[in-house]
Design a binder for these strands. Structure first.
Length: 444
RNA sequence: GCGAGAGUAGCUCAGCUGGUUAGAGCGCCUGUUUGUGGAACAGGAGGUCGUGGGUUCAAGCCCCAUUUCUCGCCCCA
């Protein structure tokens, strides 16, 4: 049996060309979050099992975590999500933290599930949370930030849709308005969550299975279907329109619209899986018909910090996974070409040059250049080929003549052009060639 | 956890109703005499056909199991 070279199921190796993409994706996340005043934090990848019990969705804890017993007999989980962890951190310093607290992190998370498109076992997820803001300014800022990240990747607003709903509204509609029991509500939420994945008749059949005979006789089925047909807040029943949750939703949509976010819509069927959401939830969908799925989302979860036995803290946040995001960027052709960090590949000409060239290399490196030197002494053509294969755009030739004159030949492998310059000039030319992807602030 | 499809060279794949020493393109290595790449030419390395069993005179091809990958379901990023 030979040793496998494959990475662990559902996890990825990142070769330099992959890591460059990941770094770019993370850089945009970091810069955008920091633009809004969010500060980076981190935490251990291991947490005690109790942290997730009754806080995440039940299936994630019971079937999708990597759980094991450590040598001290403790039940340990490799974190499947970051929200319980950050809530724990806030609770630990509940009294002393300056609110509003704005935090972000890009942790890797593990879930034991069958890998498929957009879903792996290990993924990285930007987590952005604001603590201590009870008003809709929190939702507004969080969604605005999420939207700005998308724009900074170069996404246009017609490429994705931000869907909004309210847990409170759903509770009111299913409970007070339709009169469903708690158990019925829970089942119905799950069902509505995937109503767009099934055909209409199958959906109706399954809703009917949830209702009691008397509920069915009183026409509950029709009322539910009418309710779910609501495309806009105005389509909701008169009674619902006066609910505080609906006023909030309307208010938020208004705020987003004023912030030039025109692709946010109300979606009554939006549920989200986690149990801890308490109010407004949102999800961002890829509009590409090839990849028409939820990319990421979040919402308000005012109850989580309080579970640690401290005064509750109002919280809104979202999580954005790198796998689905990369799918989005690829399908919309938004990933830029990313050259390696190495500014130039140094090719030595002549015998025994390696030692002689060291002072020159050290000098250029001191001036800030990233240089890789070919140590093989192979024919020049092979060395150039190597540079080209590595994707390094520039080659510096150094031989006896160059050392004597203290001027070096720089070749651009893309254009084929060659120029001879002093070390100082080389450094400044190569630094100018660096292309750092920056957030494209298109707030205009 | 459930369902479907697929695993042949580093990559993309071909391989007839089972029939001798398993192929192509690309890539890789060497050389065309060491101060210039992407080309051309010449040569070369590389496969226990995912793994284990079975059927057969004979298995890359048929059967079973297993594993990995891909796609869906559940759930979710």
């Amino acid at each position: 049996m030979t040793l496998s070279t494959q990475p662990y199921k559902g996890a990825r190796d990142f070769y330099p060309e992959d890591k460059r993409i990941q770094k770019y994706i993370f850089d945009v996340m970091r810069q955008t979050a920091e633009r809004f005043g969010y500060e980076e934090y981190d935490a251990p990848i291991l947490e005690p099992l109790e942290l997730y019990l009754a806080k995440s969705s039940e299936e994630i804890v019971s079937e999708q975590t990597y759980t094991f017993e450590d040598r001290g007999g403790r039940q340990v989980v490799i974190r499947p999500e970051m929200t319980p962890t950050v809530s724990r951190m806030i609770a630990a310093r509940r009294q002393e933290l300056p609110y509003p607290m704005r935090l972000y992190s890009i942790p890797n998370l593990w879930r034991y599930e069958r890998p498929q498109k957009g879903r792996l076992r290990e993924h990285w997820q930007l987590n952005v949370d604001i603590f201590g803001v009870g008003g809709n300014e929190a939702e507004h800022e969080i969604i605005q930030l999420a939207d700005q990240i998308m724009r900074n990747y170069g996404a246009k607003q017609d490429m994705y849709t931000i869907r909004l709903n309210s847990r409170k509204l759903i509770d009111y509609l299913l409970g007070d308005y339709l009169g469903l029991s708690d158990v019925q509500r829970q089942t119905m939420v799950r069902l509505i969550d995937r109503m767009h994945k099934m055909d209409h008749s199958a959906f109706i059949a399954q809703t009917d299975a949830i209702f009691t005979p008397s509920q069915k006789d009183s026409g509950l089925s029709e009322r539910l279907i009418n309710l779910l047909a609501a495309k806009r807040i105005d389509d909701l029943p008169e009674d619902a329109q006066h609910q505080a949750s609906v006023v909030e939703l309307q208010n938020l949509l208004q705020m987003l619209d004023s912030s030039r976010i025109k692709n946010a819509v109300f979606d009554i069927s939006l549920m989200r899986g986690f149990d801890y959401y308490t109010d407004i939830v949102f999800e961002v969908f890829d509009n590409d018909p090839e990849n028409n799925r939820s990319m990421f989302g979040g919402g308000r979860y005012d109850g989580l910090v309080g579970l640690f036995g401290v005064e509750p803290v109002a919280t809104v946040g979202f999580g954005m996974g790198d796998v689905t995001l990369k799918n989005f960027l690829e399908s919309h052709n938004l990933l830029p070409g990313l050259p390696p960090e190495t500014d130039a590949y140094v090719i030595l000409i002549g015998e025994a040059m390696y030692d002689k060239v060291q002072p020159t290399l050290a000098n250029m490196r001191r001036m800030g250049l990233n240089l890789a030197v070919d140590t093989t002494g192979r024919n020049i053509d092979k060395q150039i080929k190597t540079a080209d294969k590595k994707g390094i755009e520039h080659v510096i030739f150094i031989g006896e003549a160059e050392l004597a004159e203290d001027r070096f030949k720089l070749k651009n492998l893309r254009s084929g052009e060659e120029e001879t310059h002093s070390a100082e000039r080389l450094v400044s030319i190569l630094k100018d060639h660096r292309v750092k992807p920056k957030p494209t602030d298109d707030s205009a």
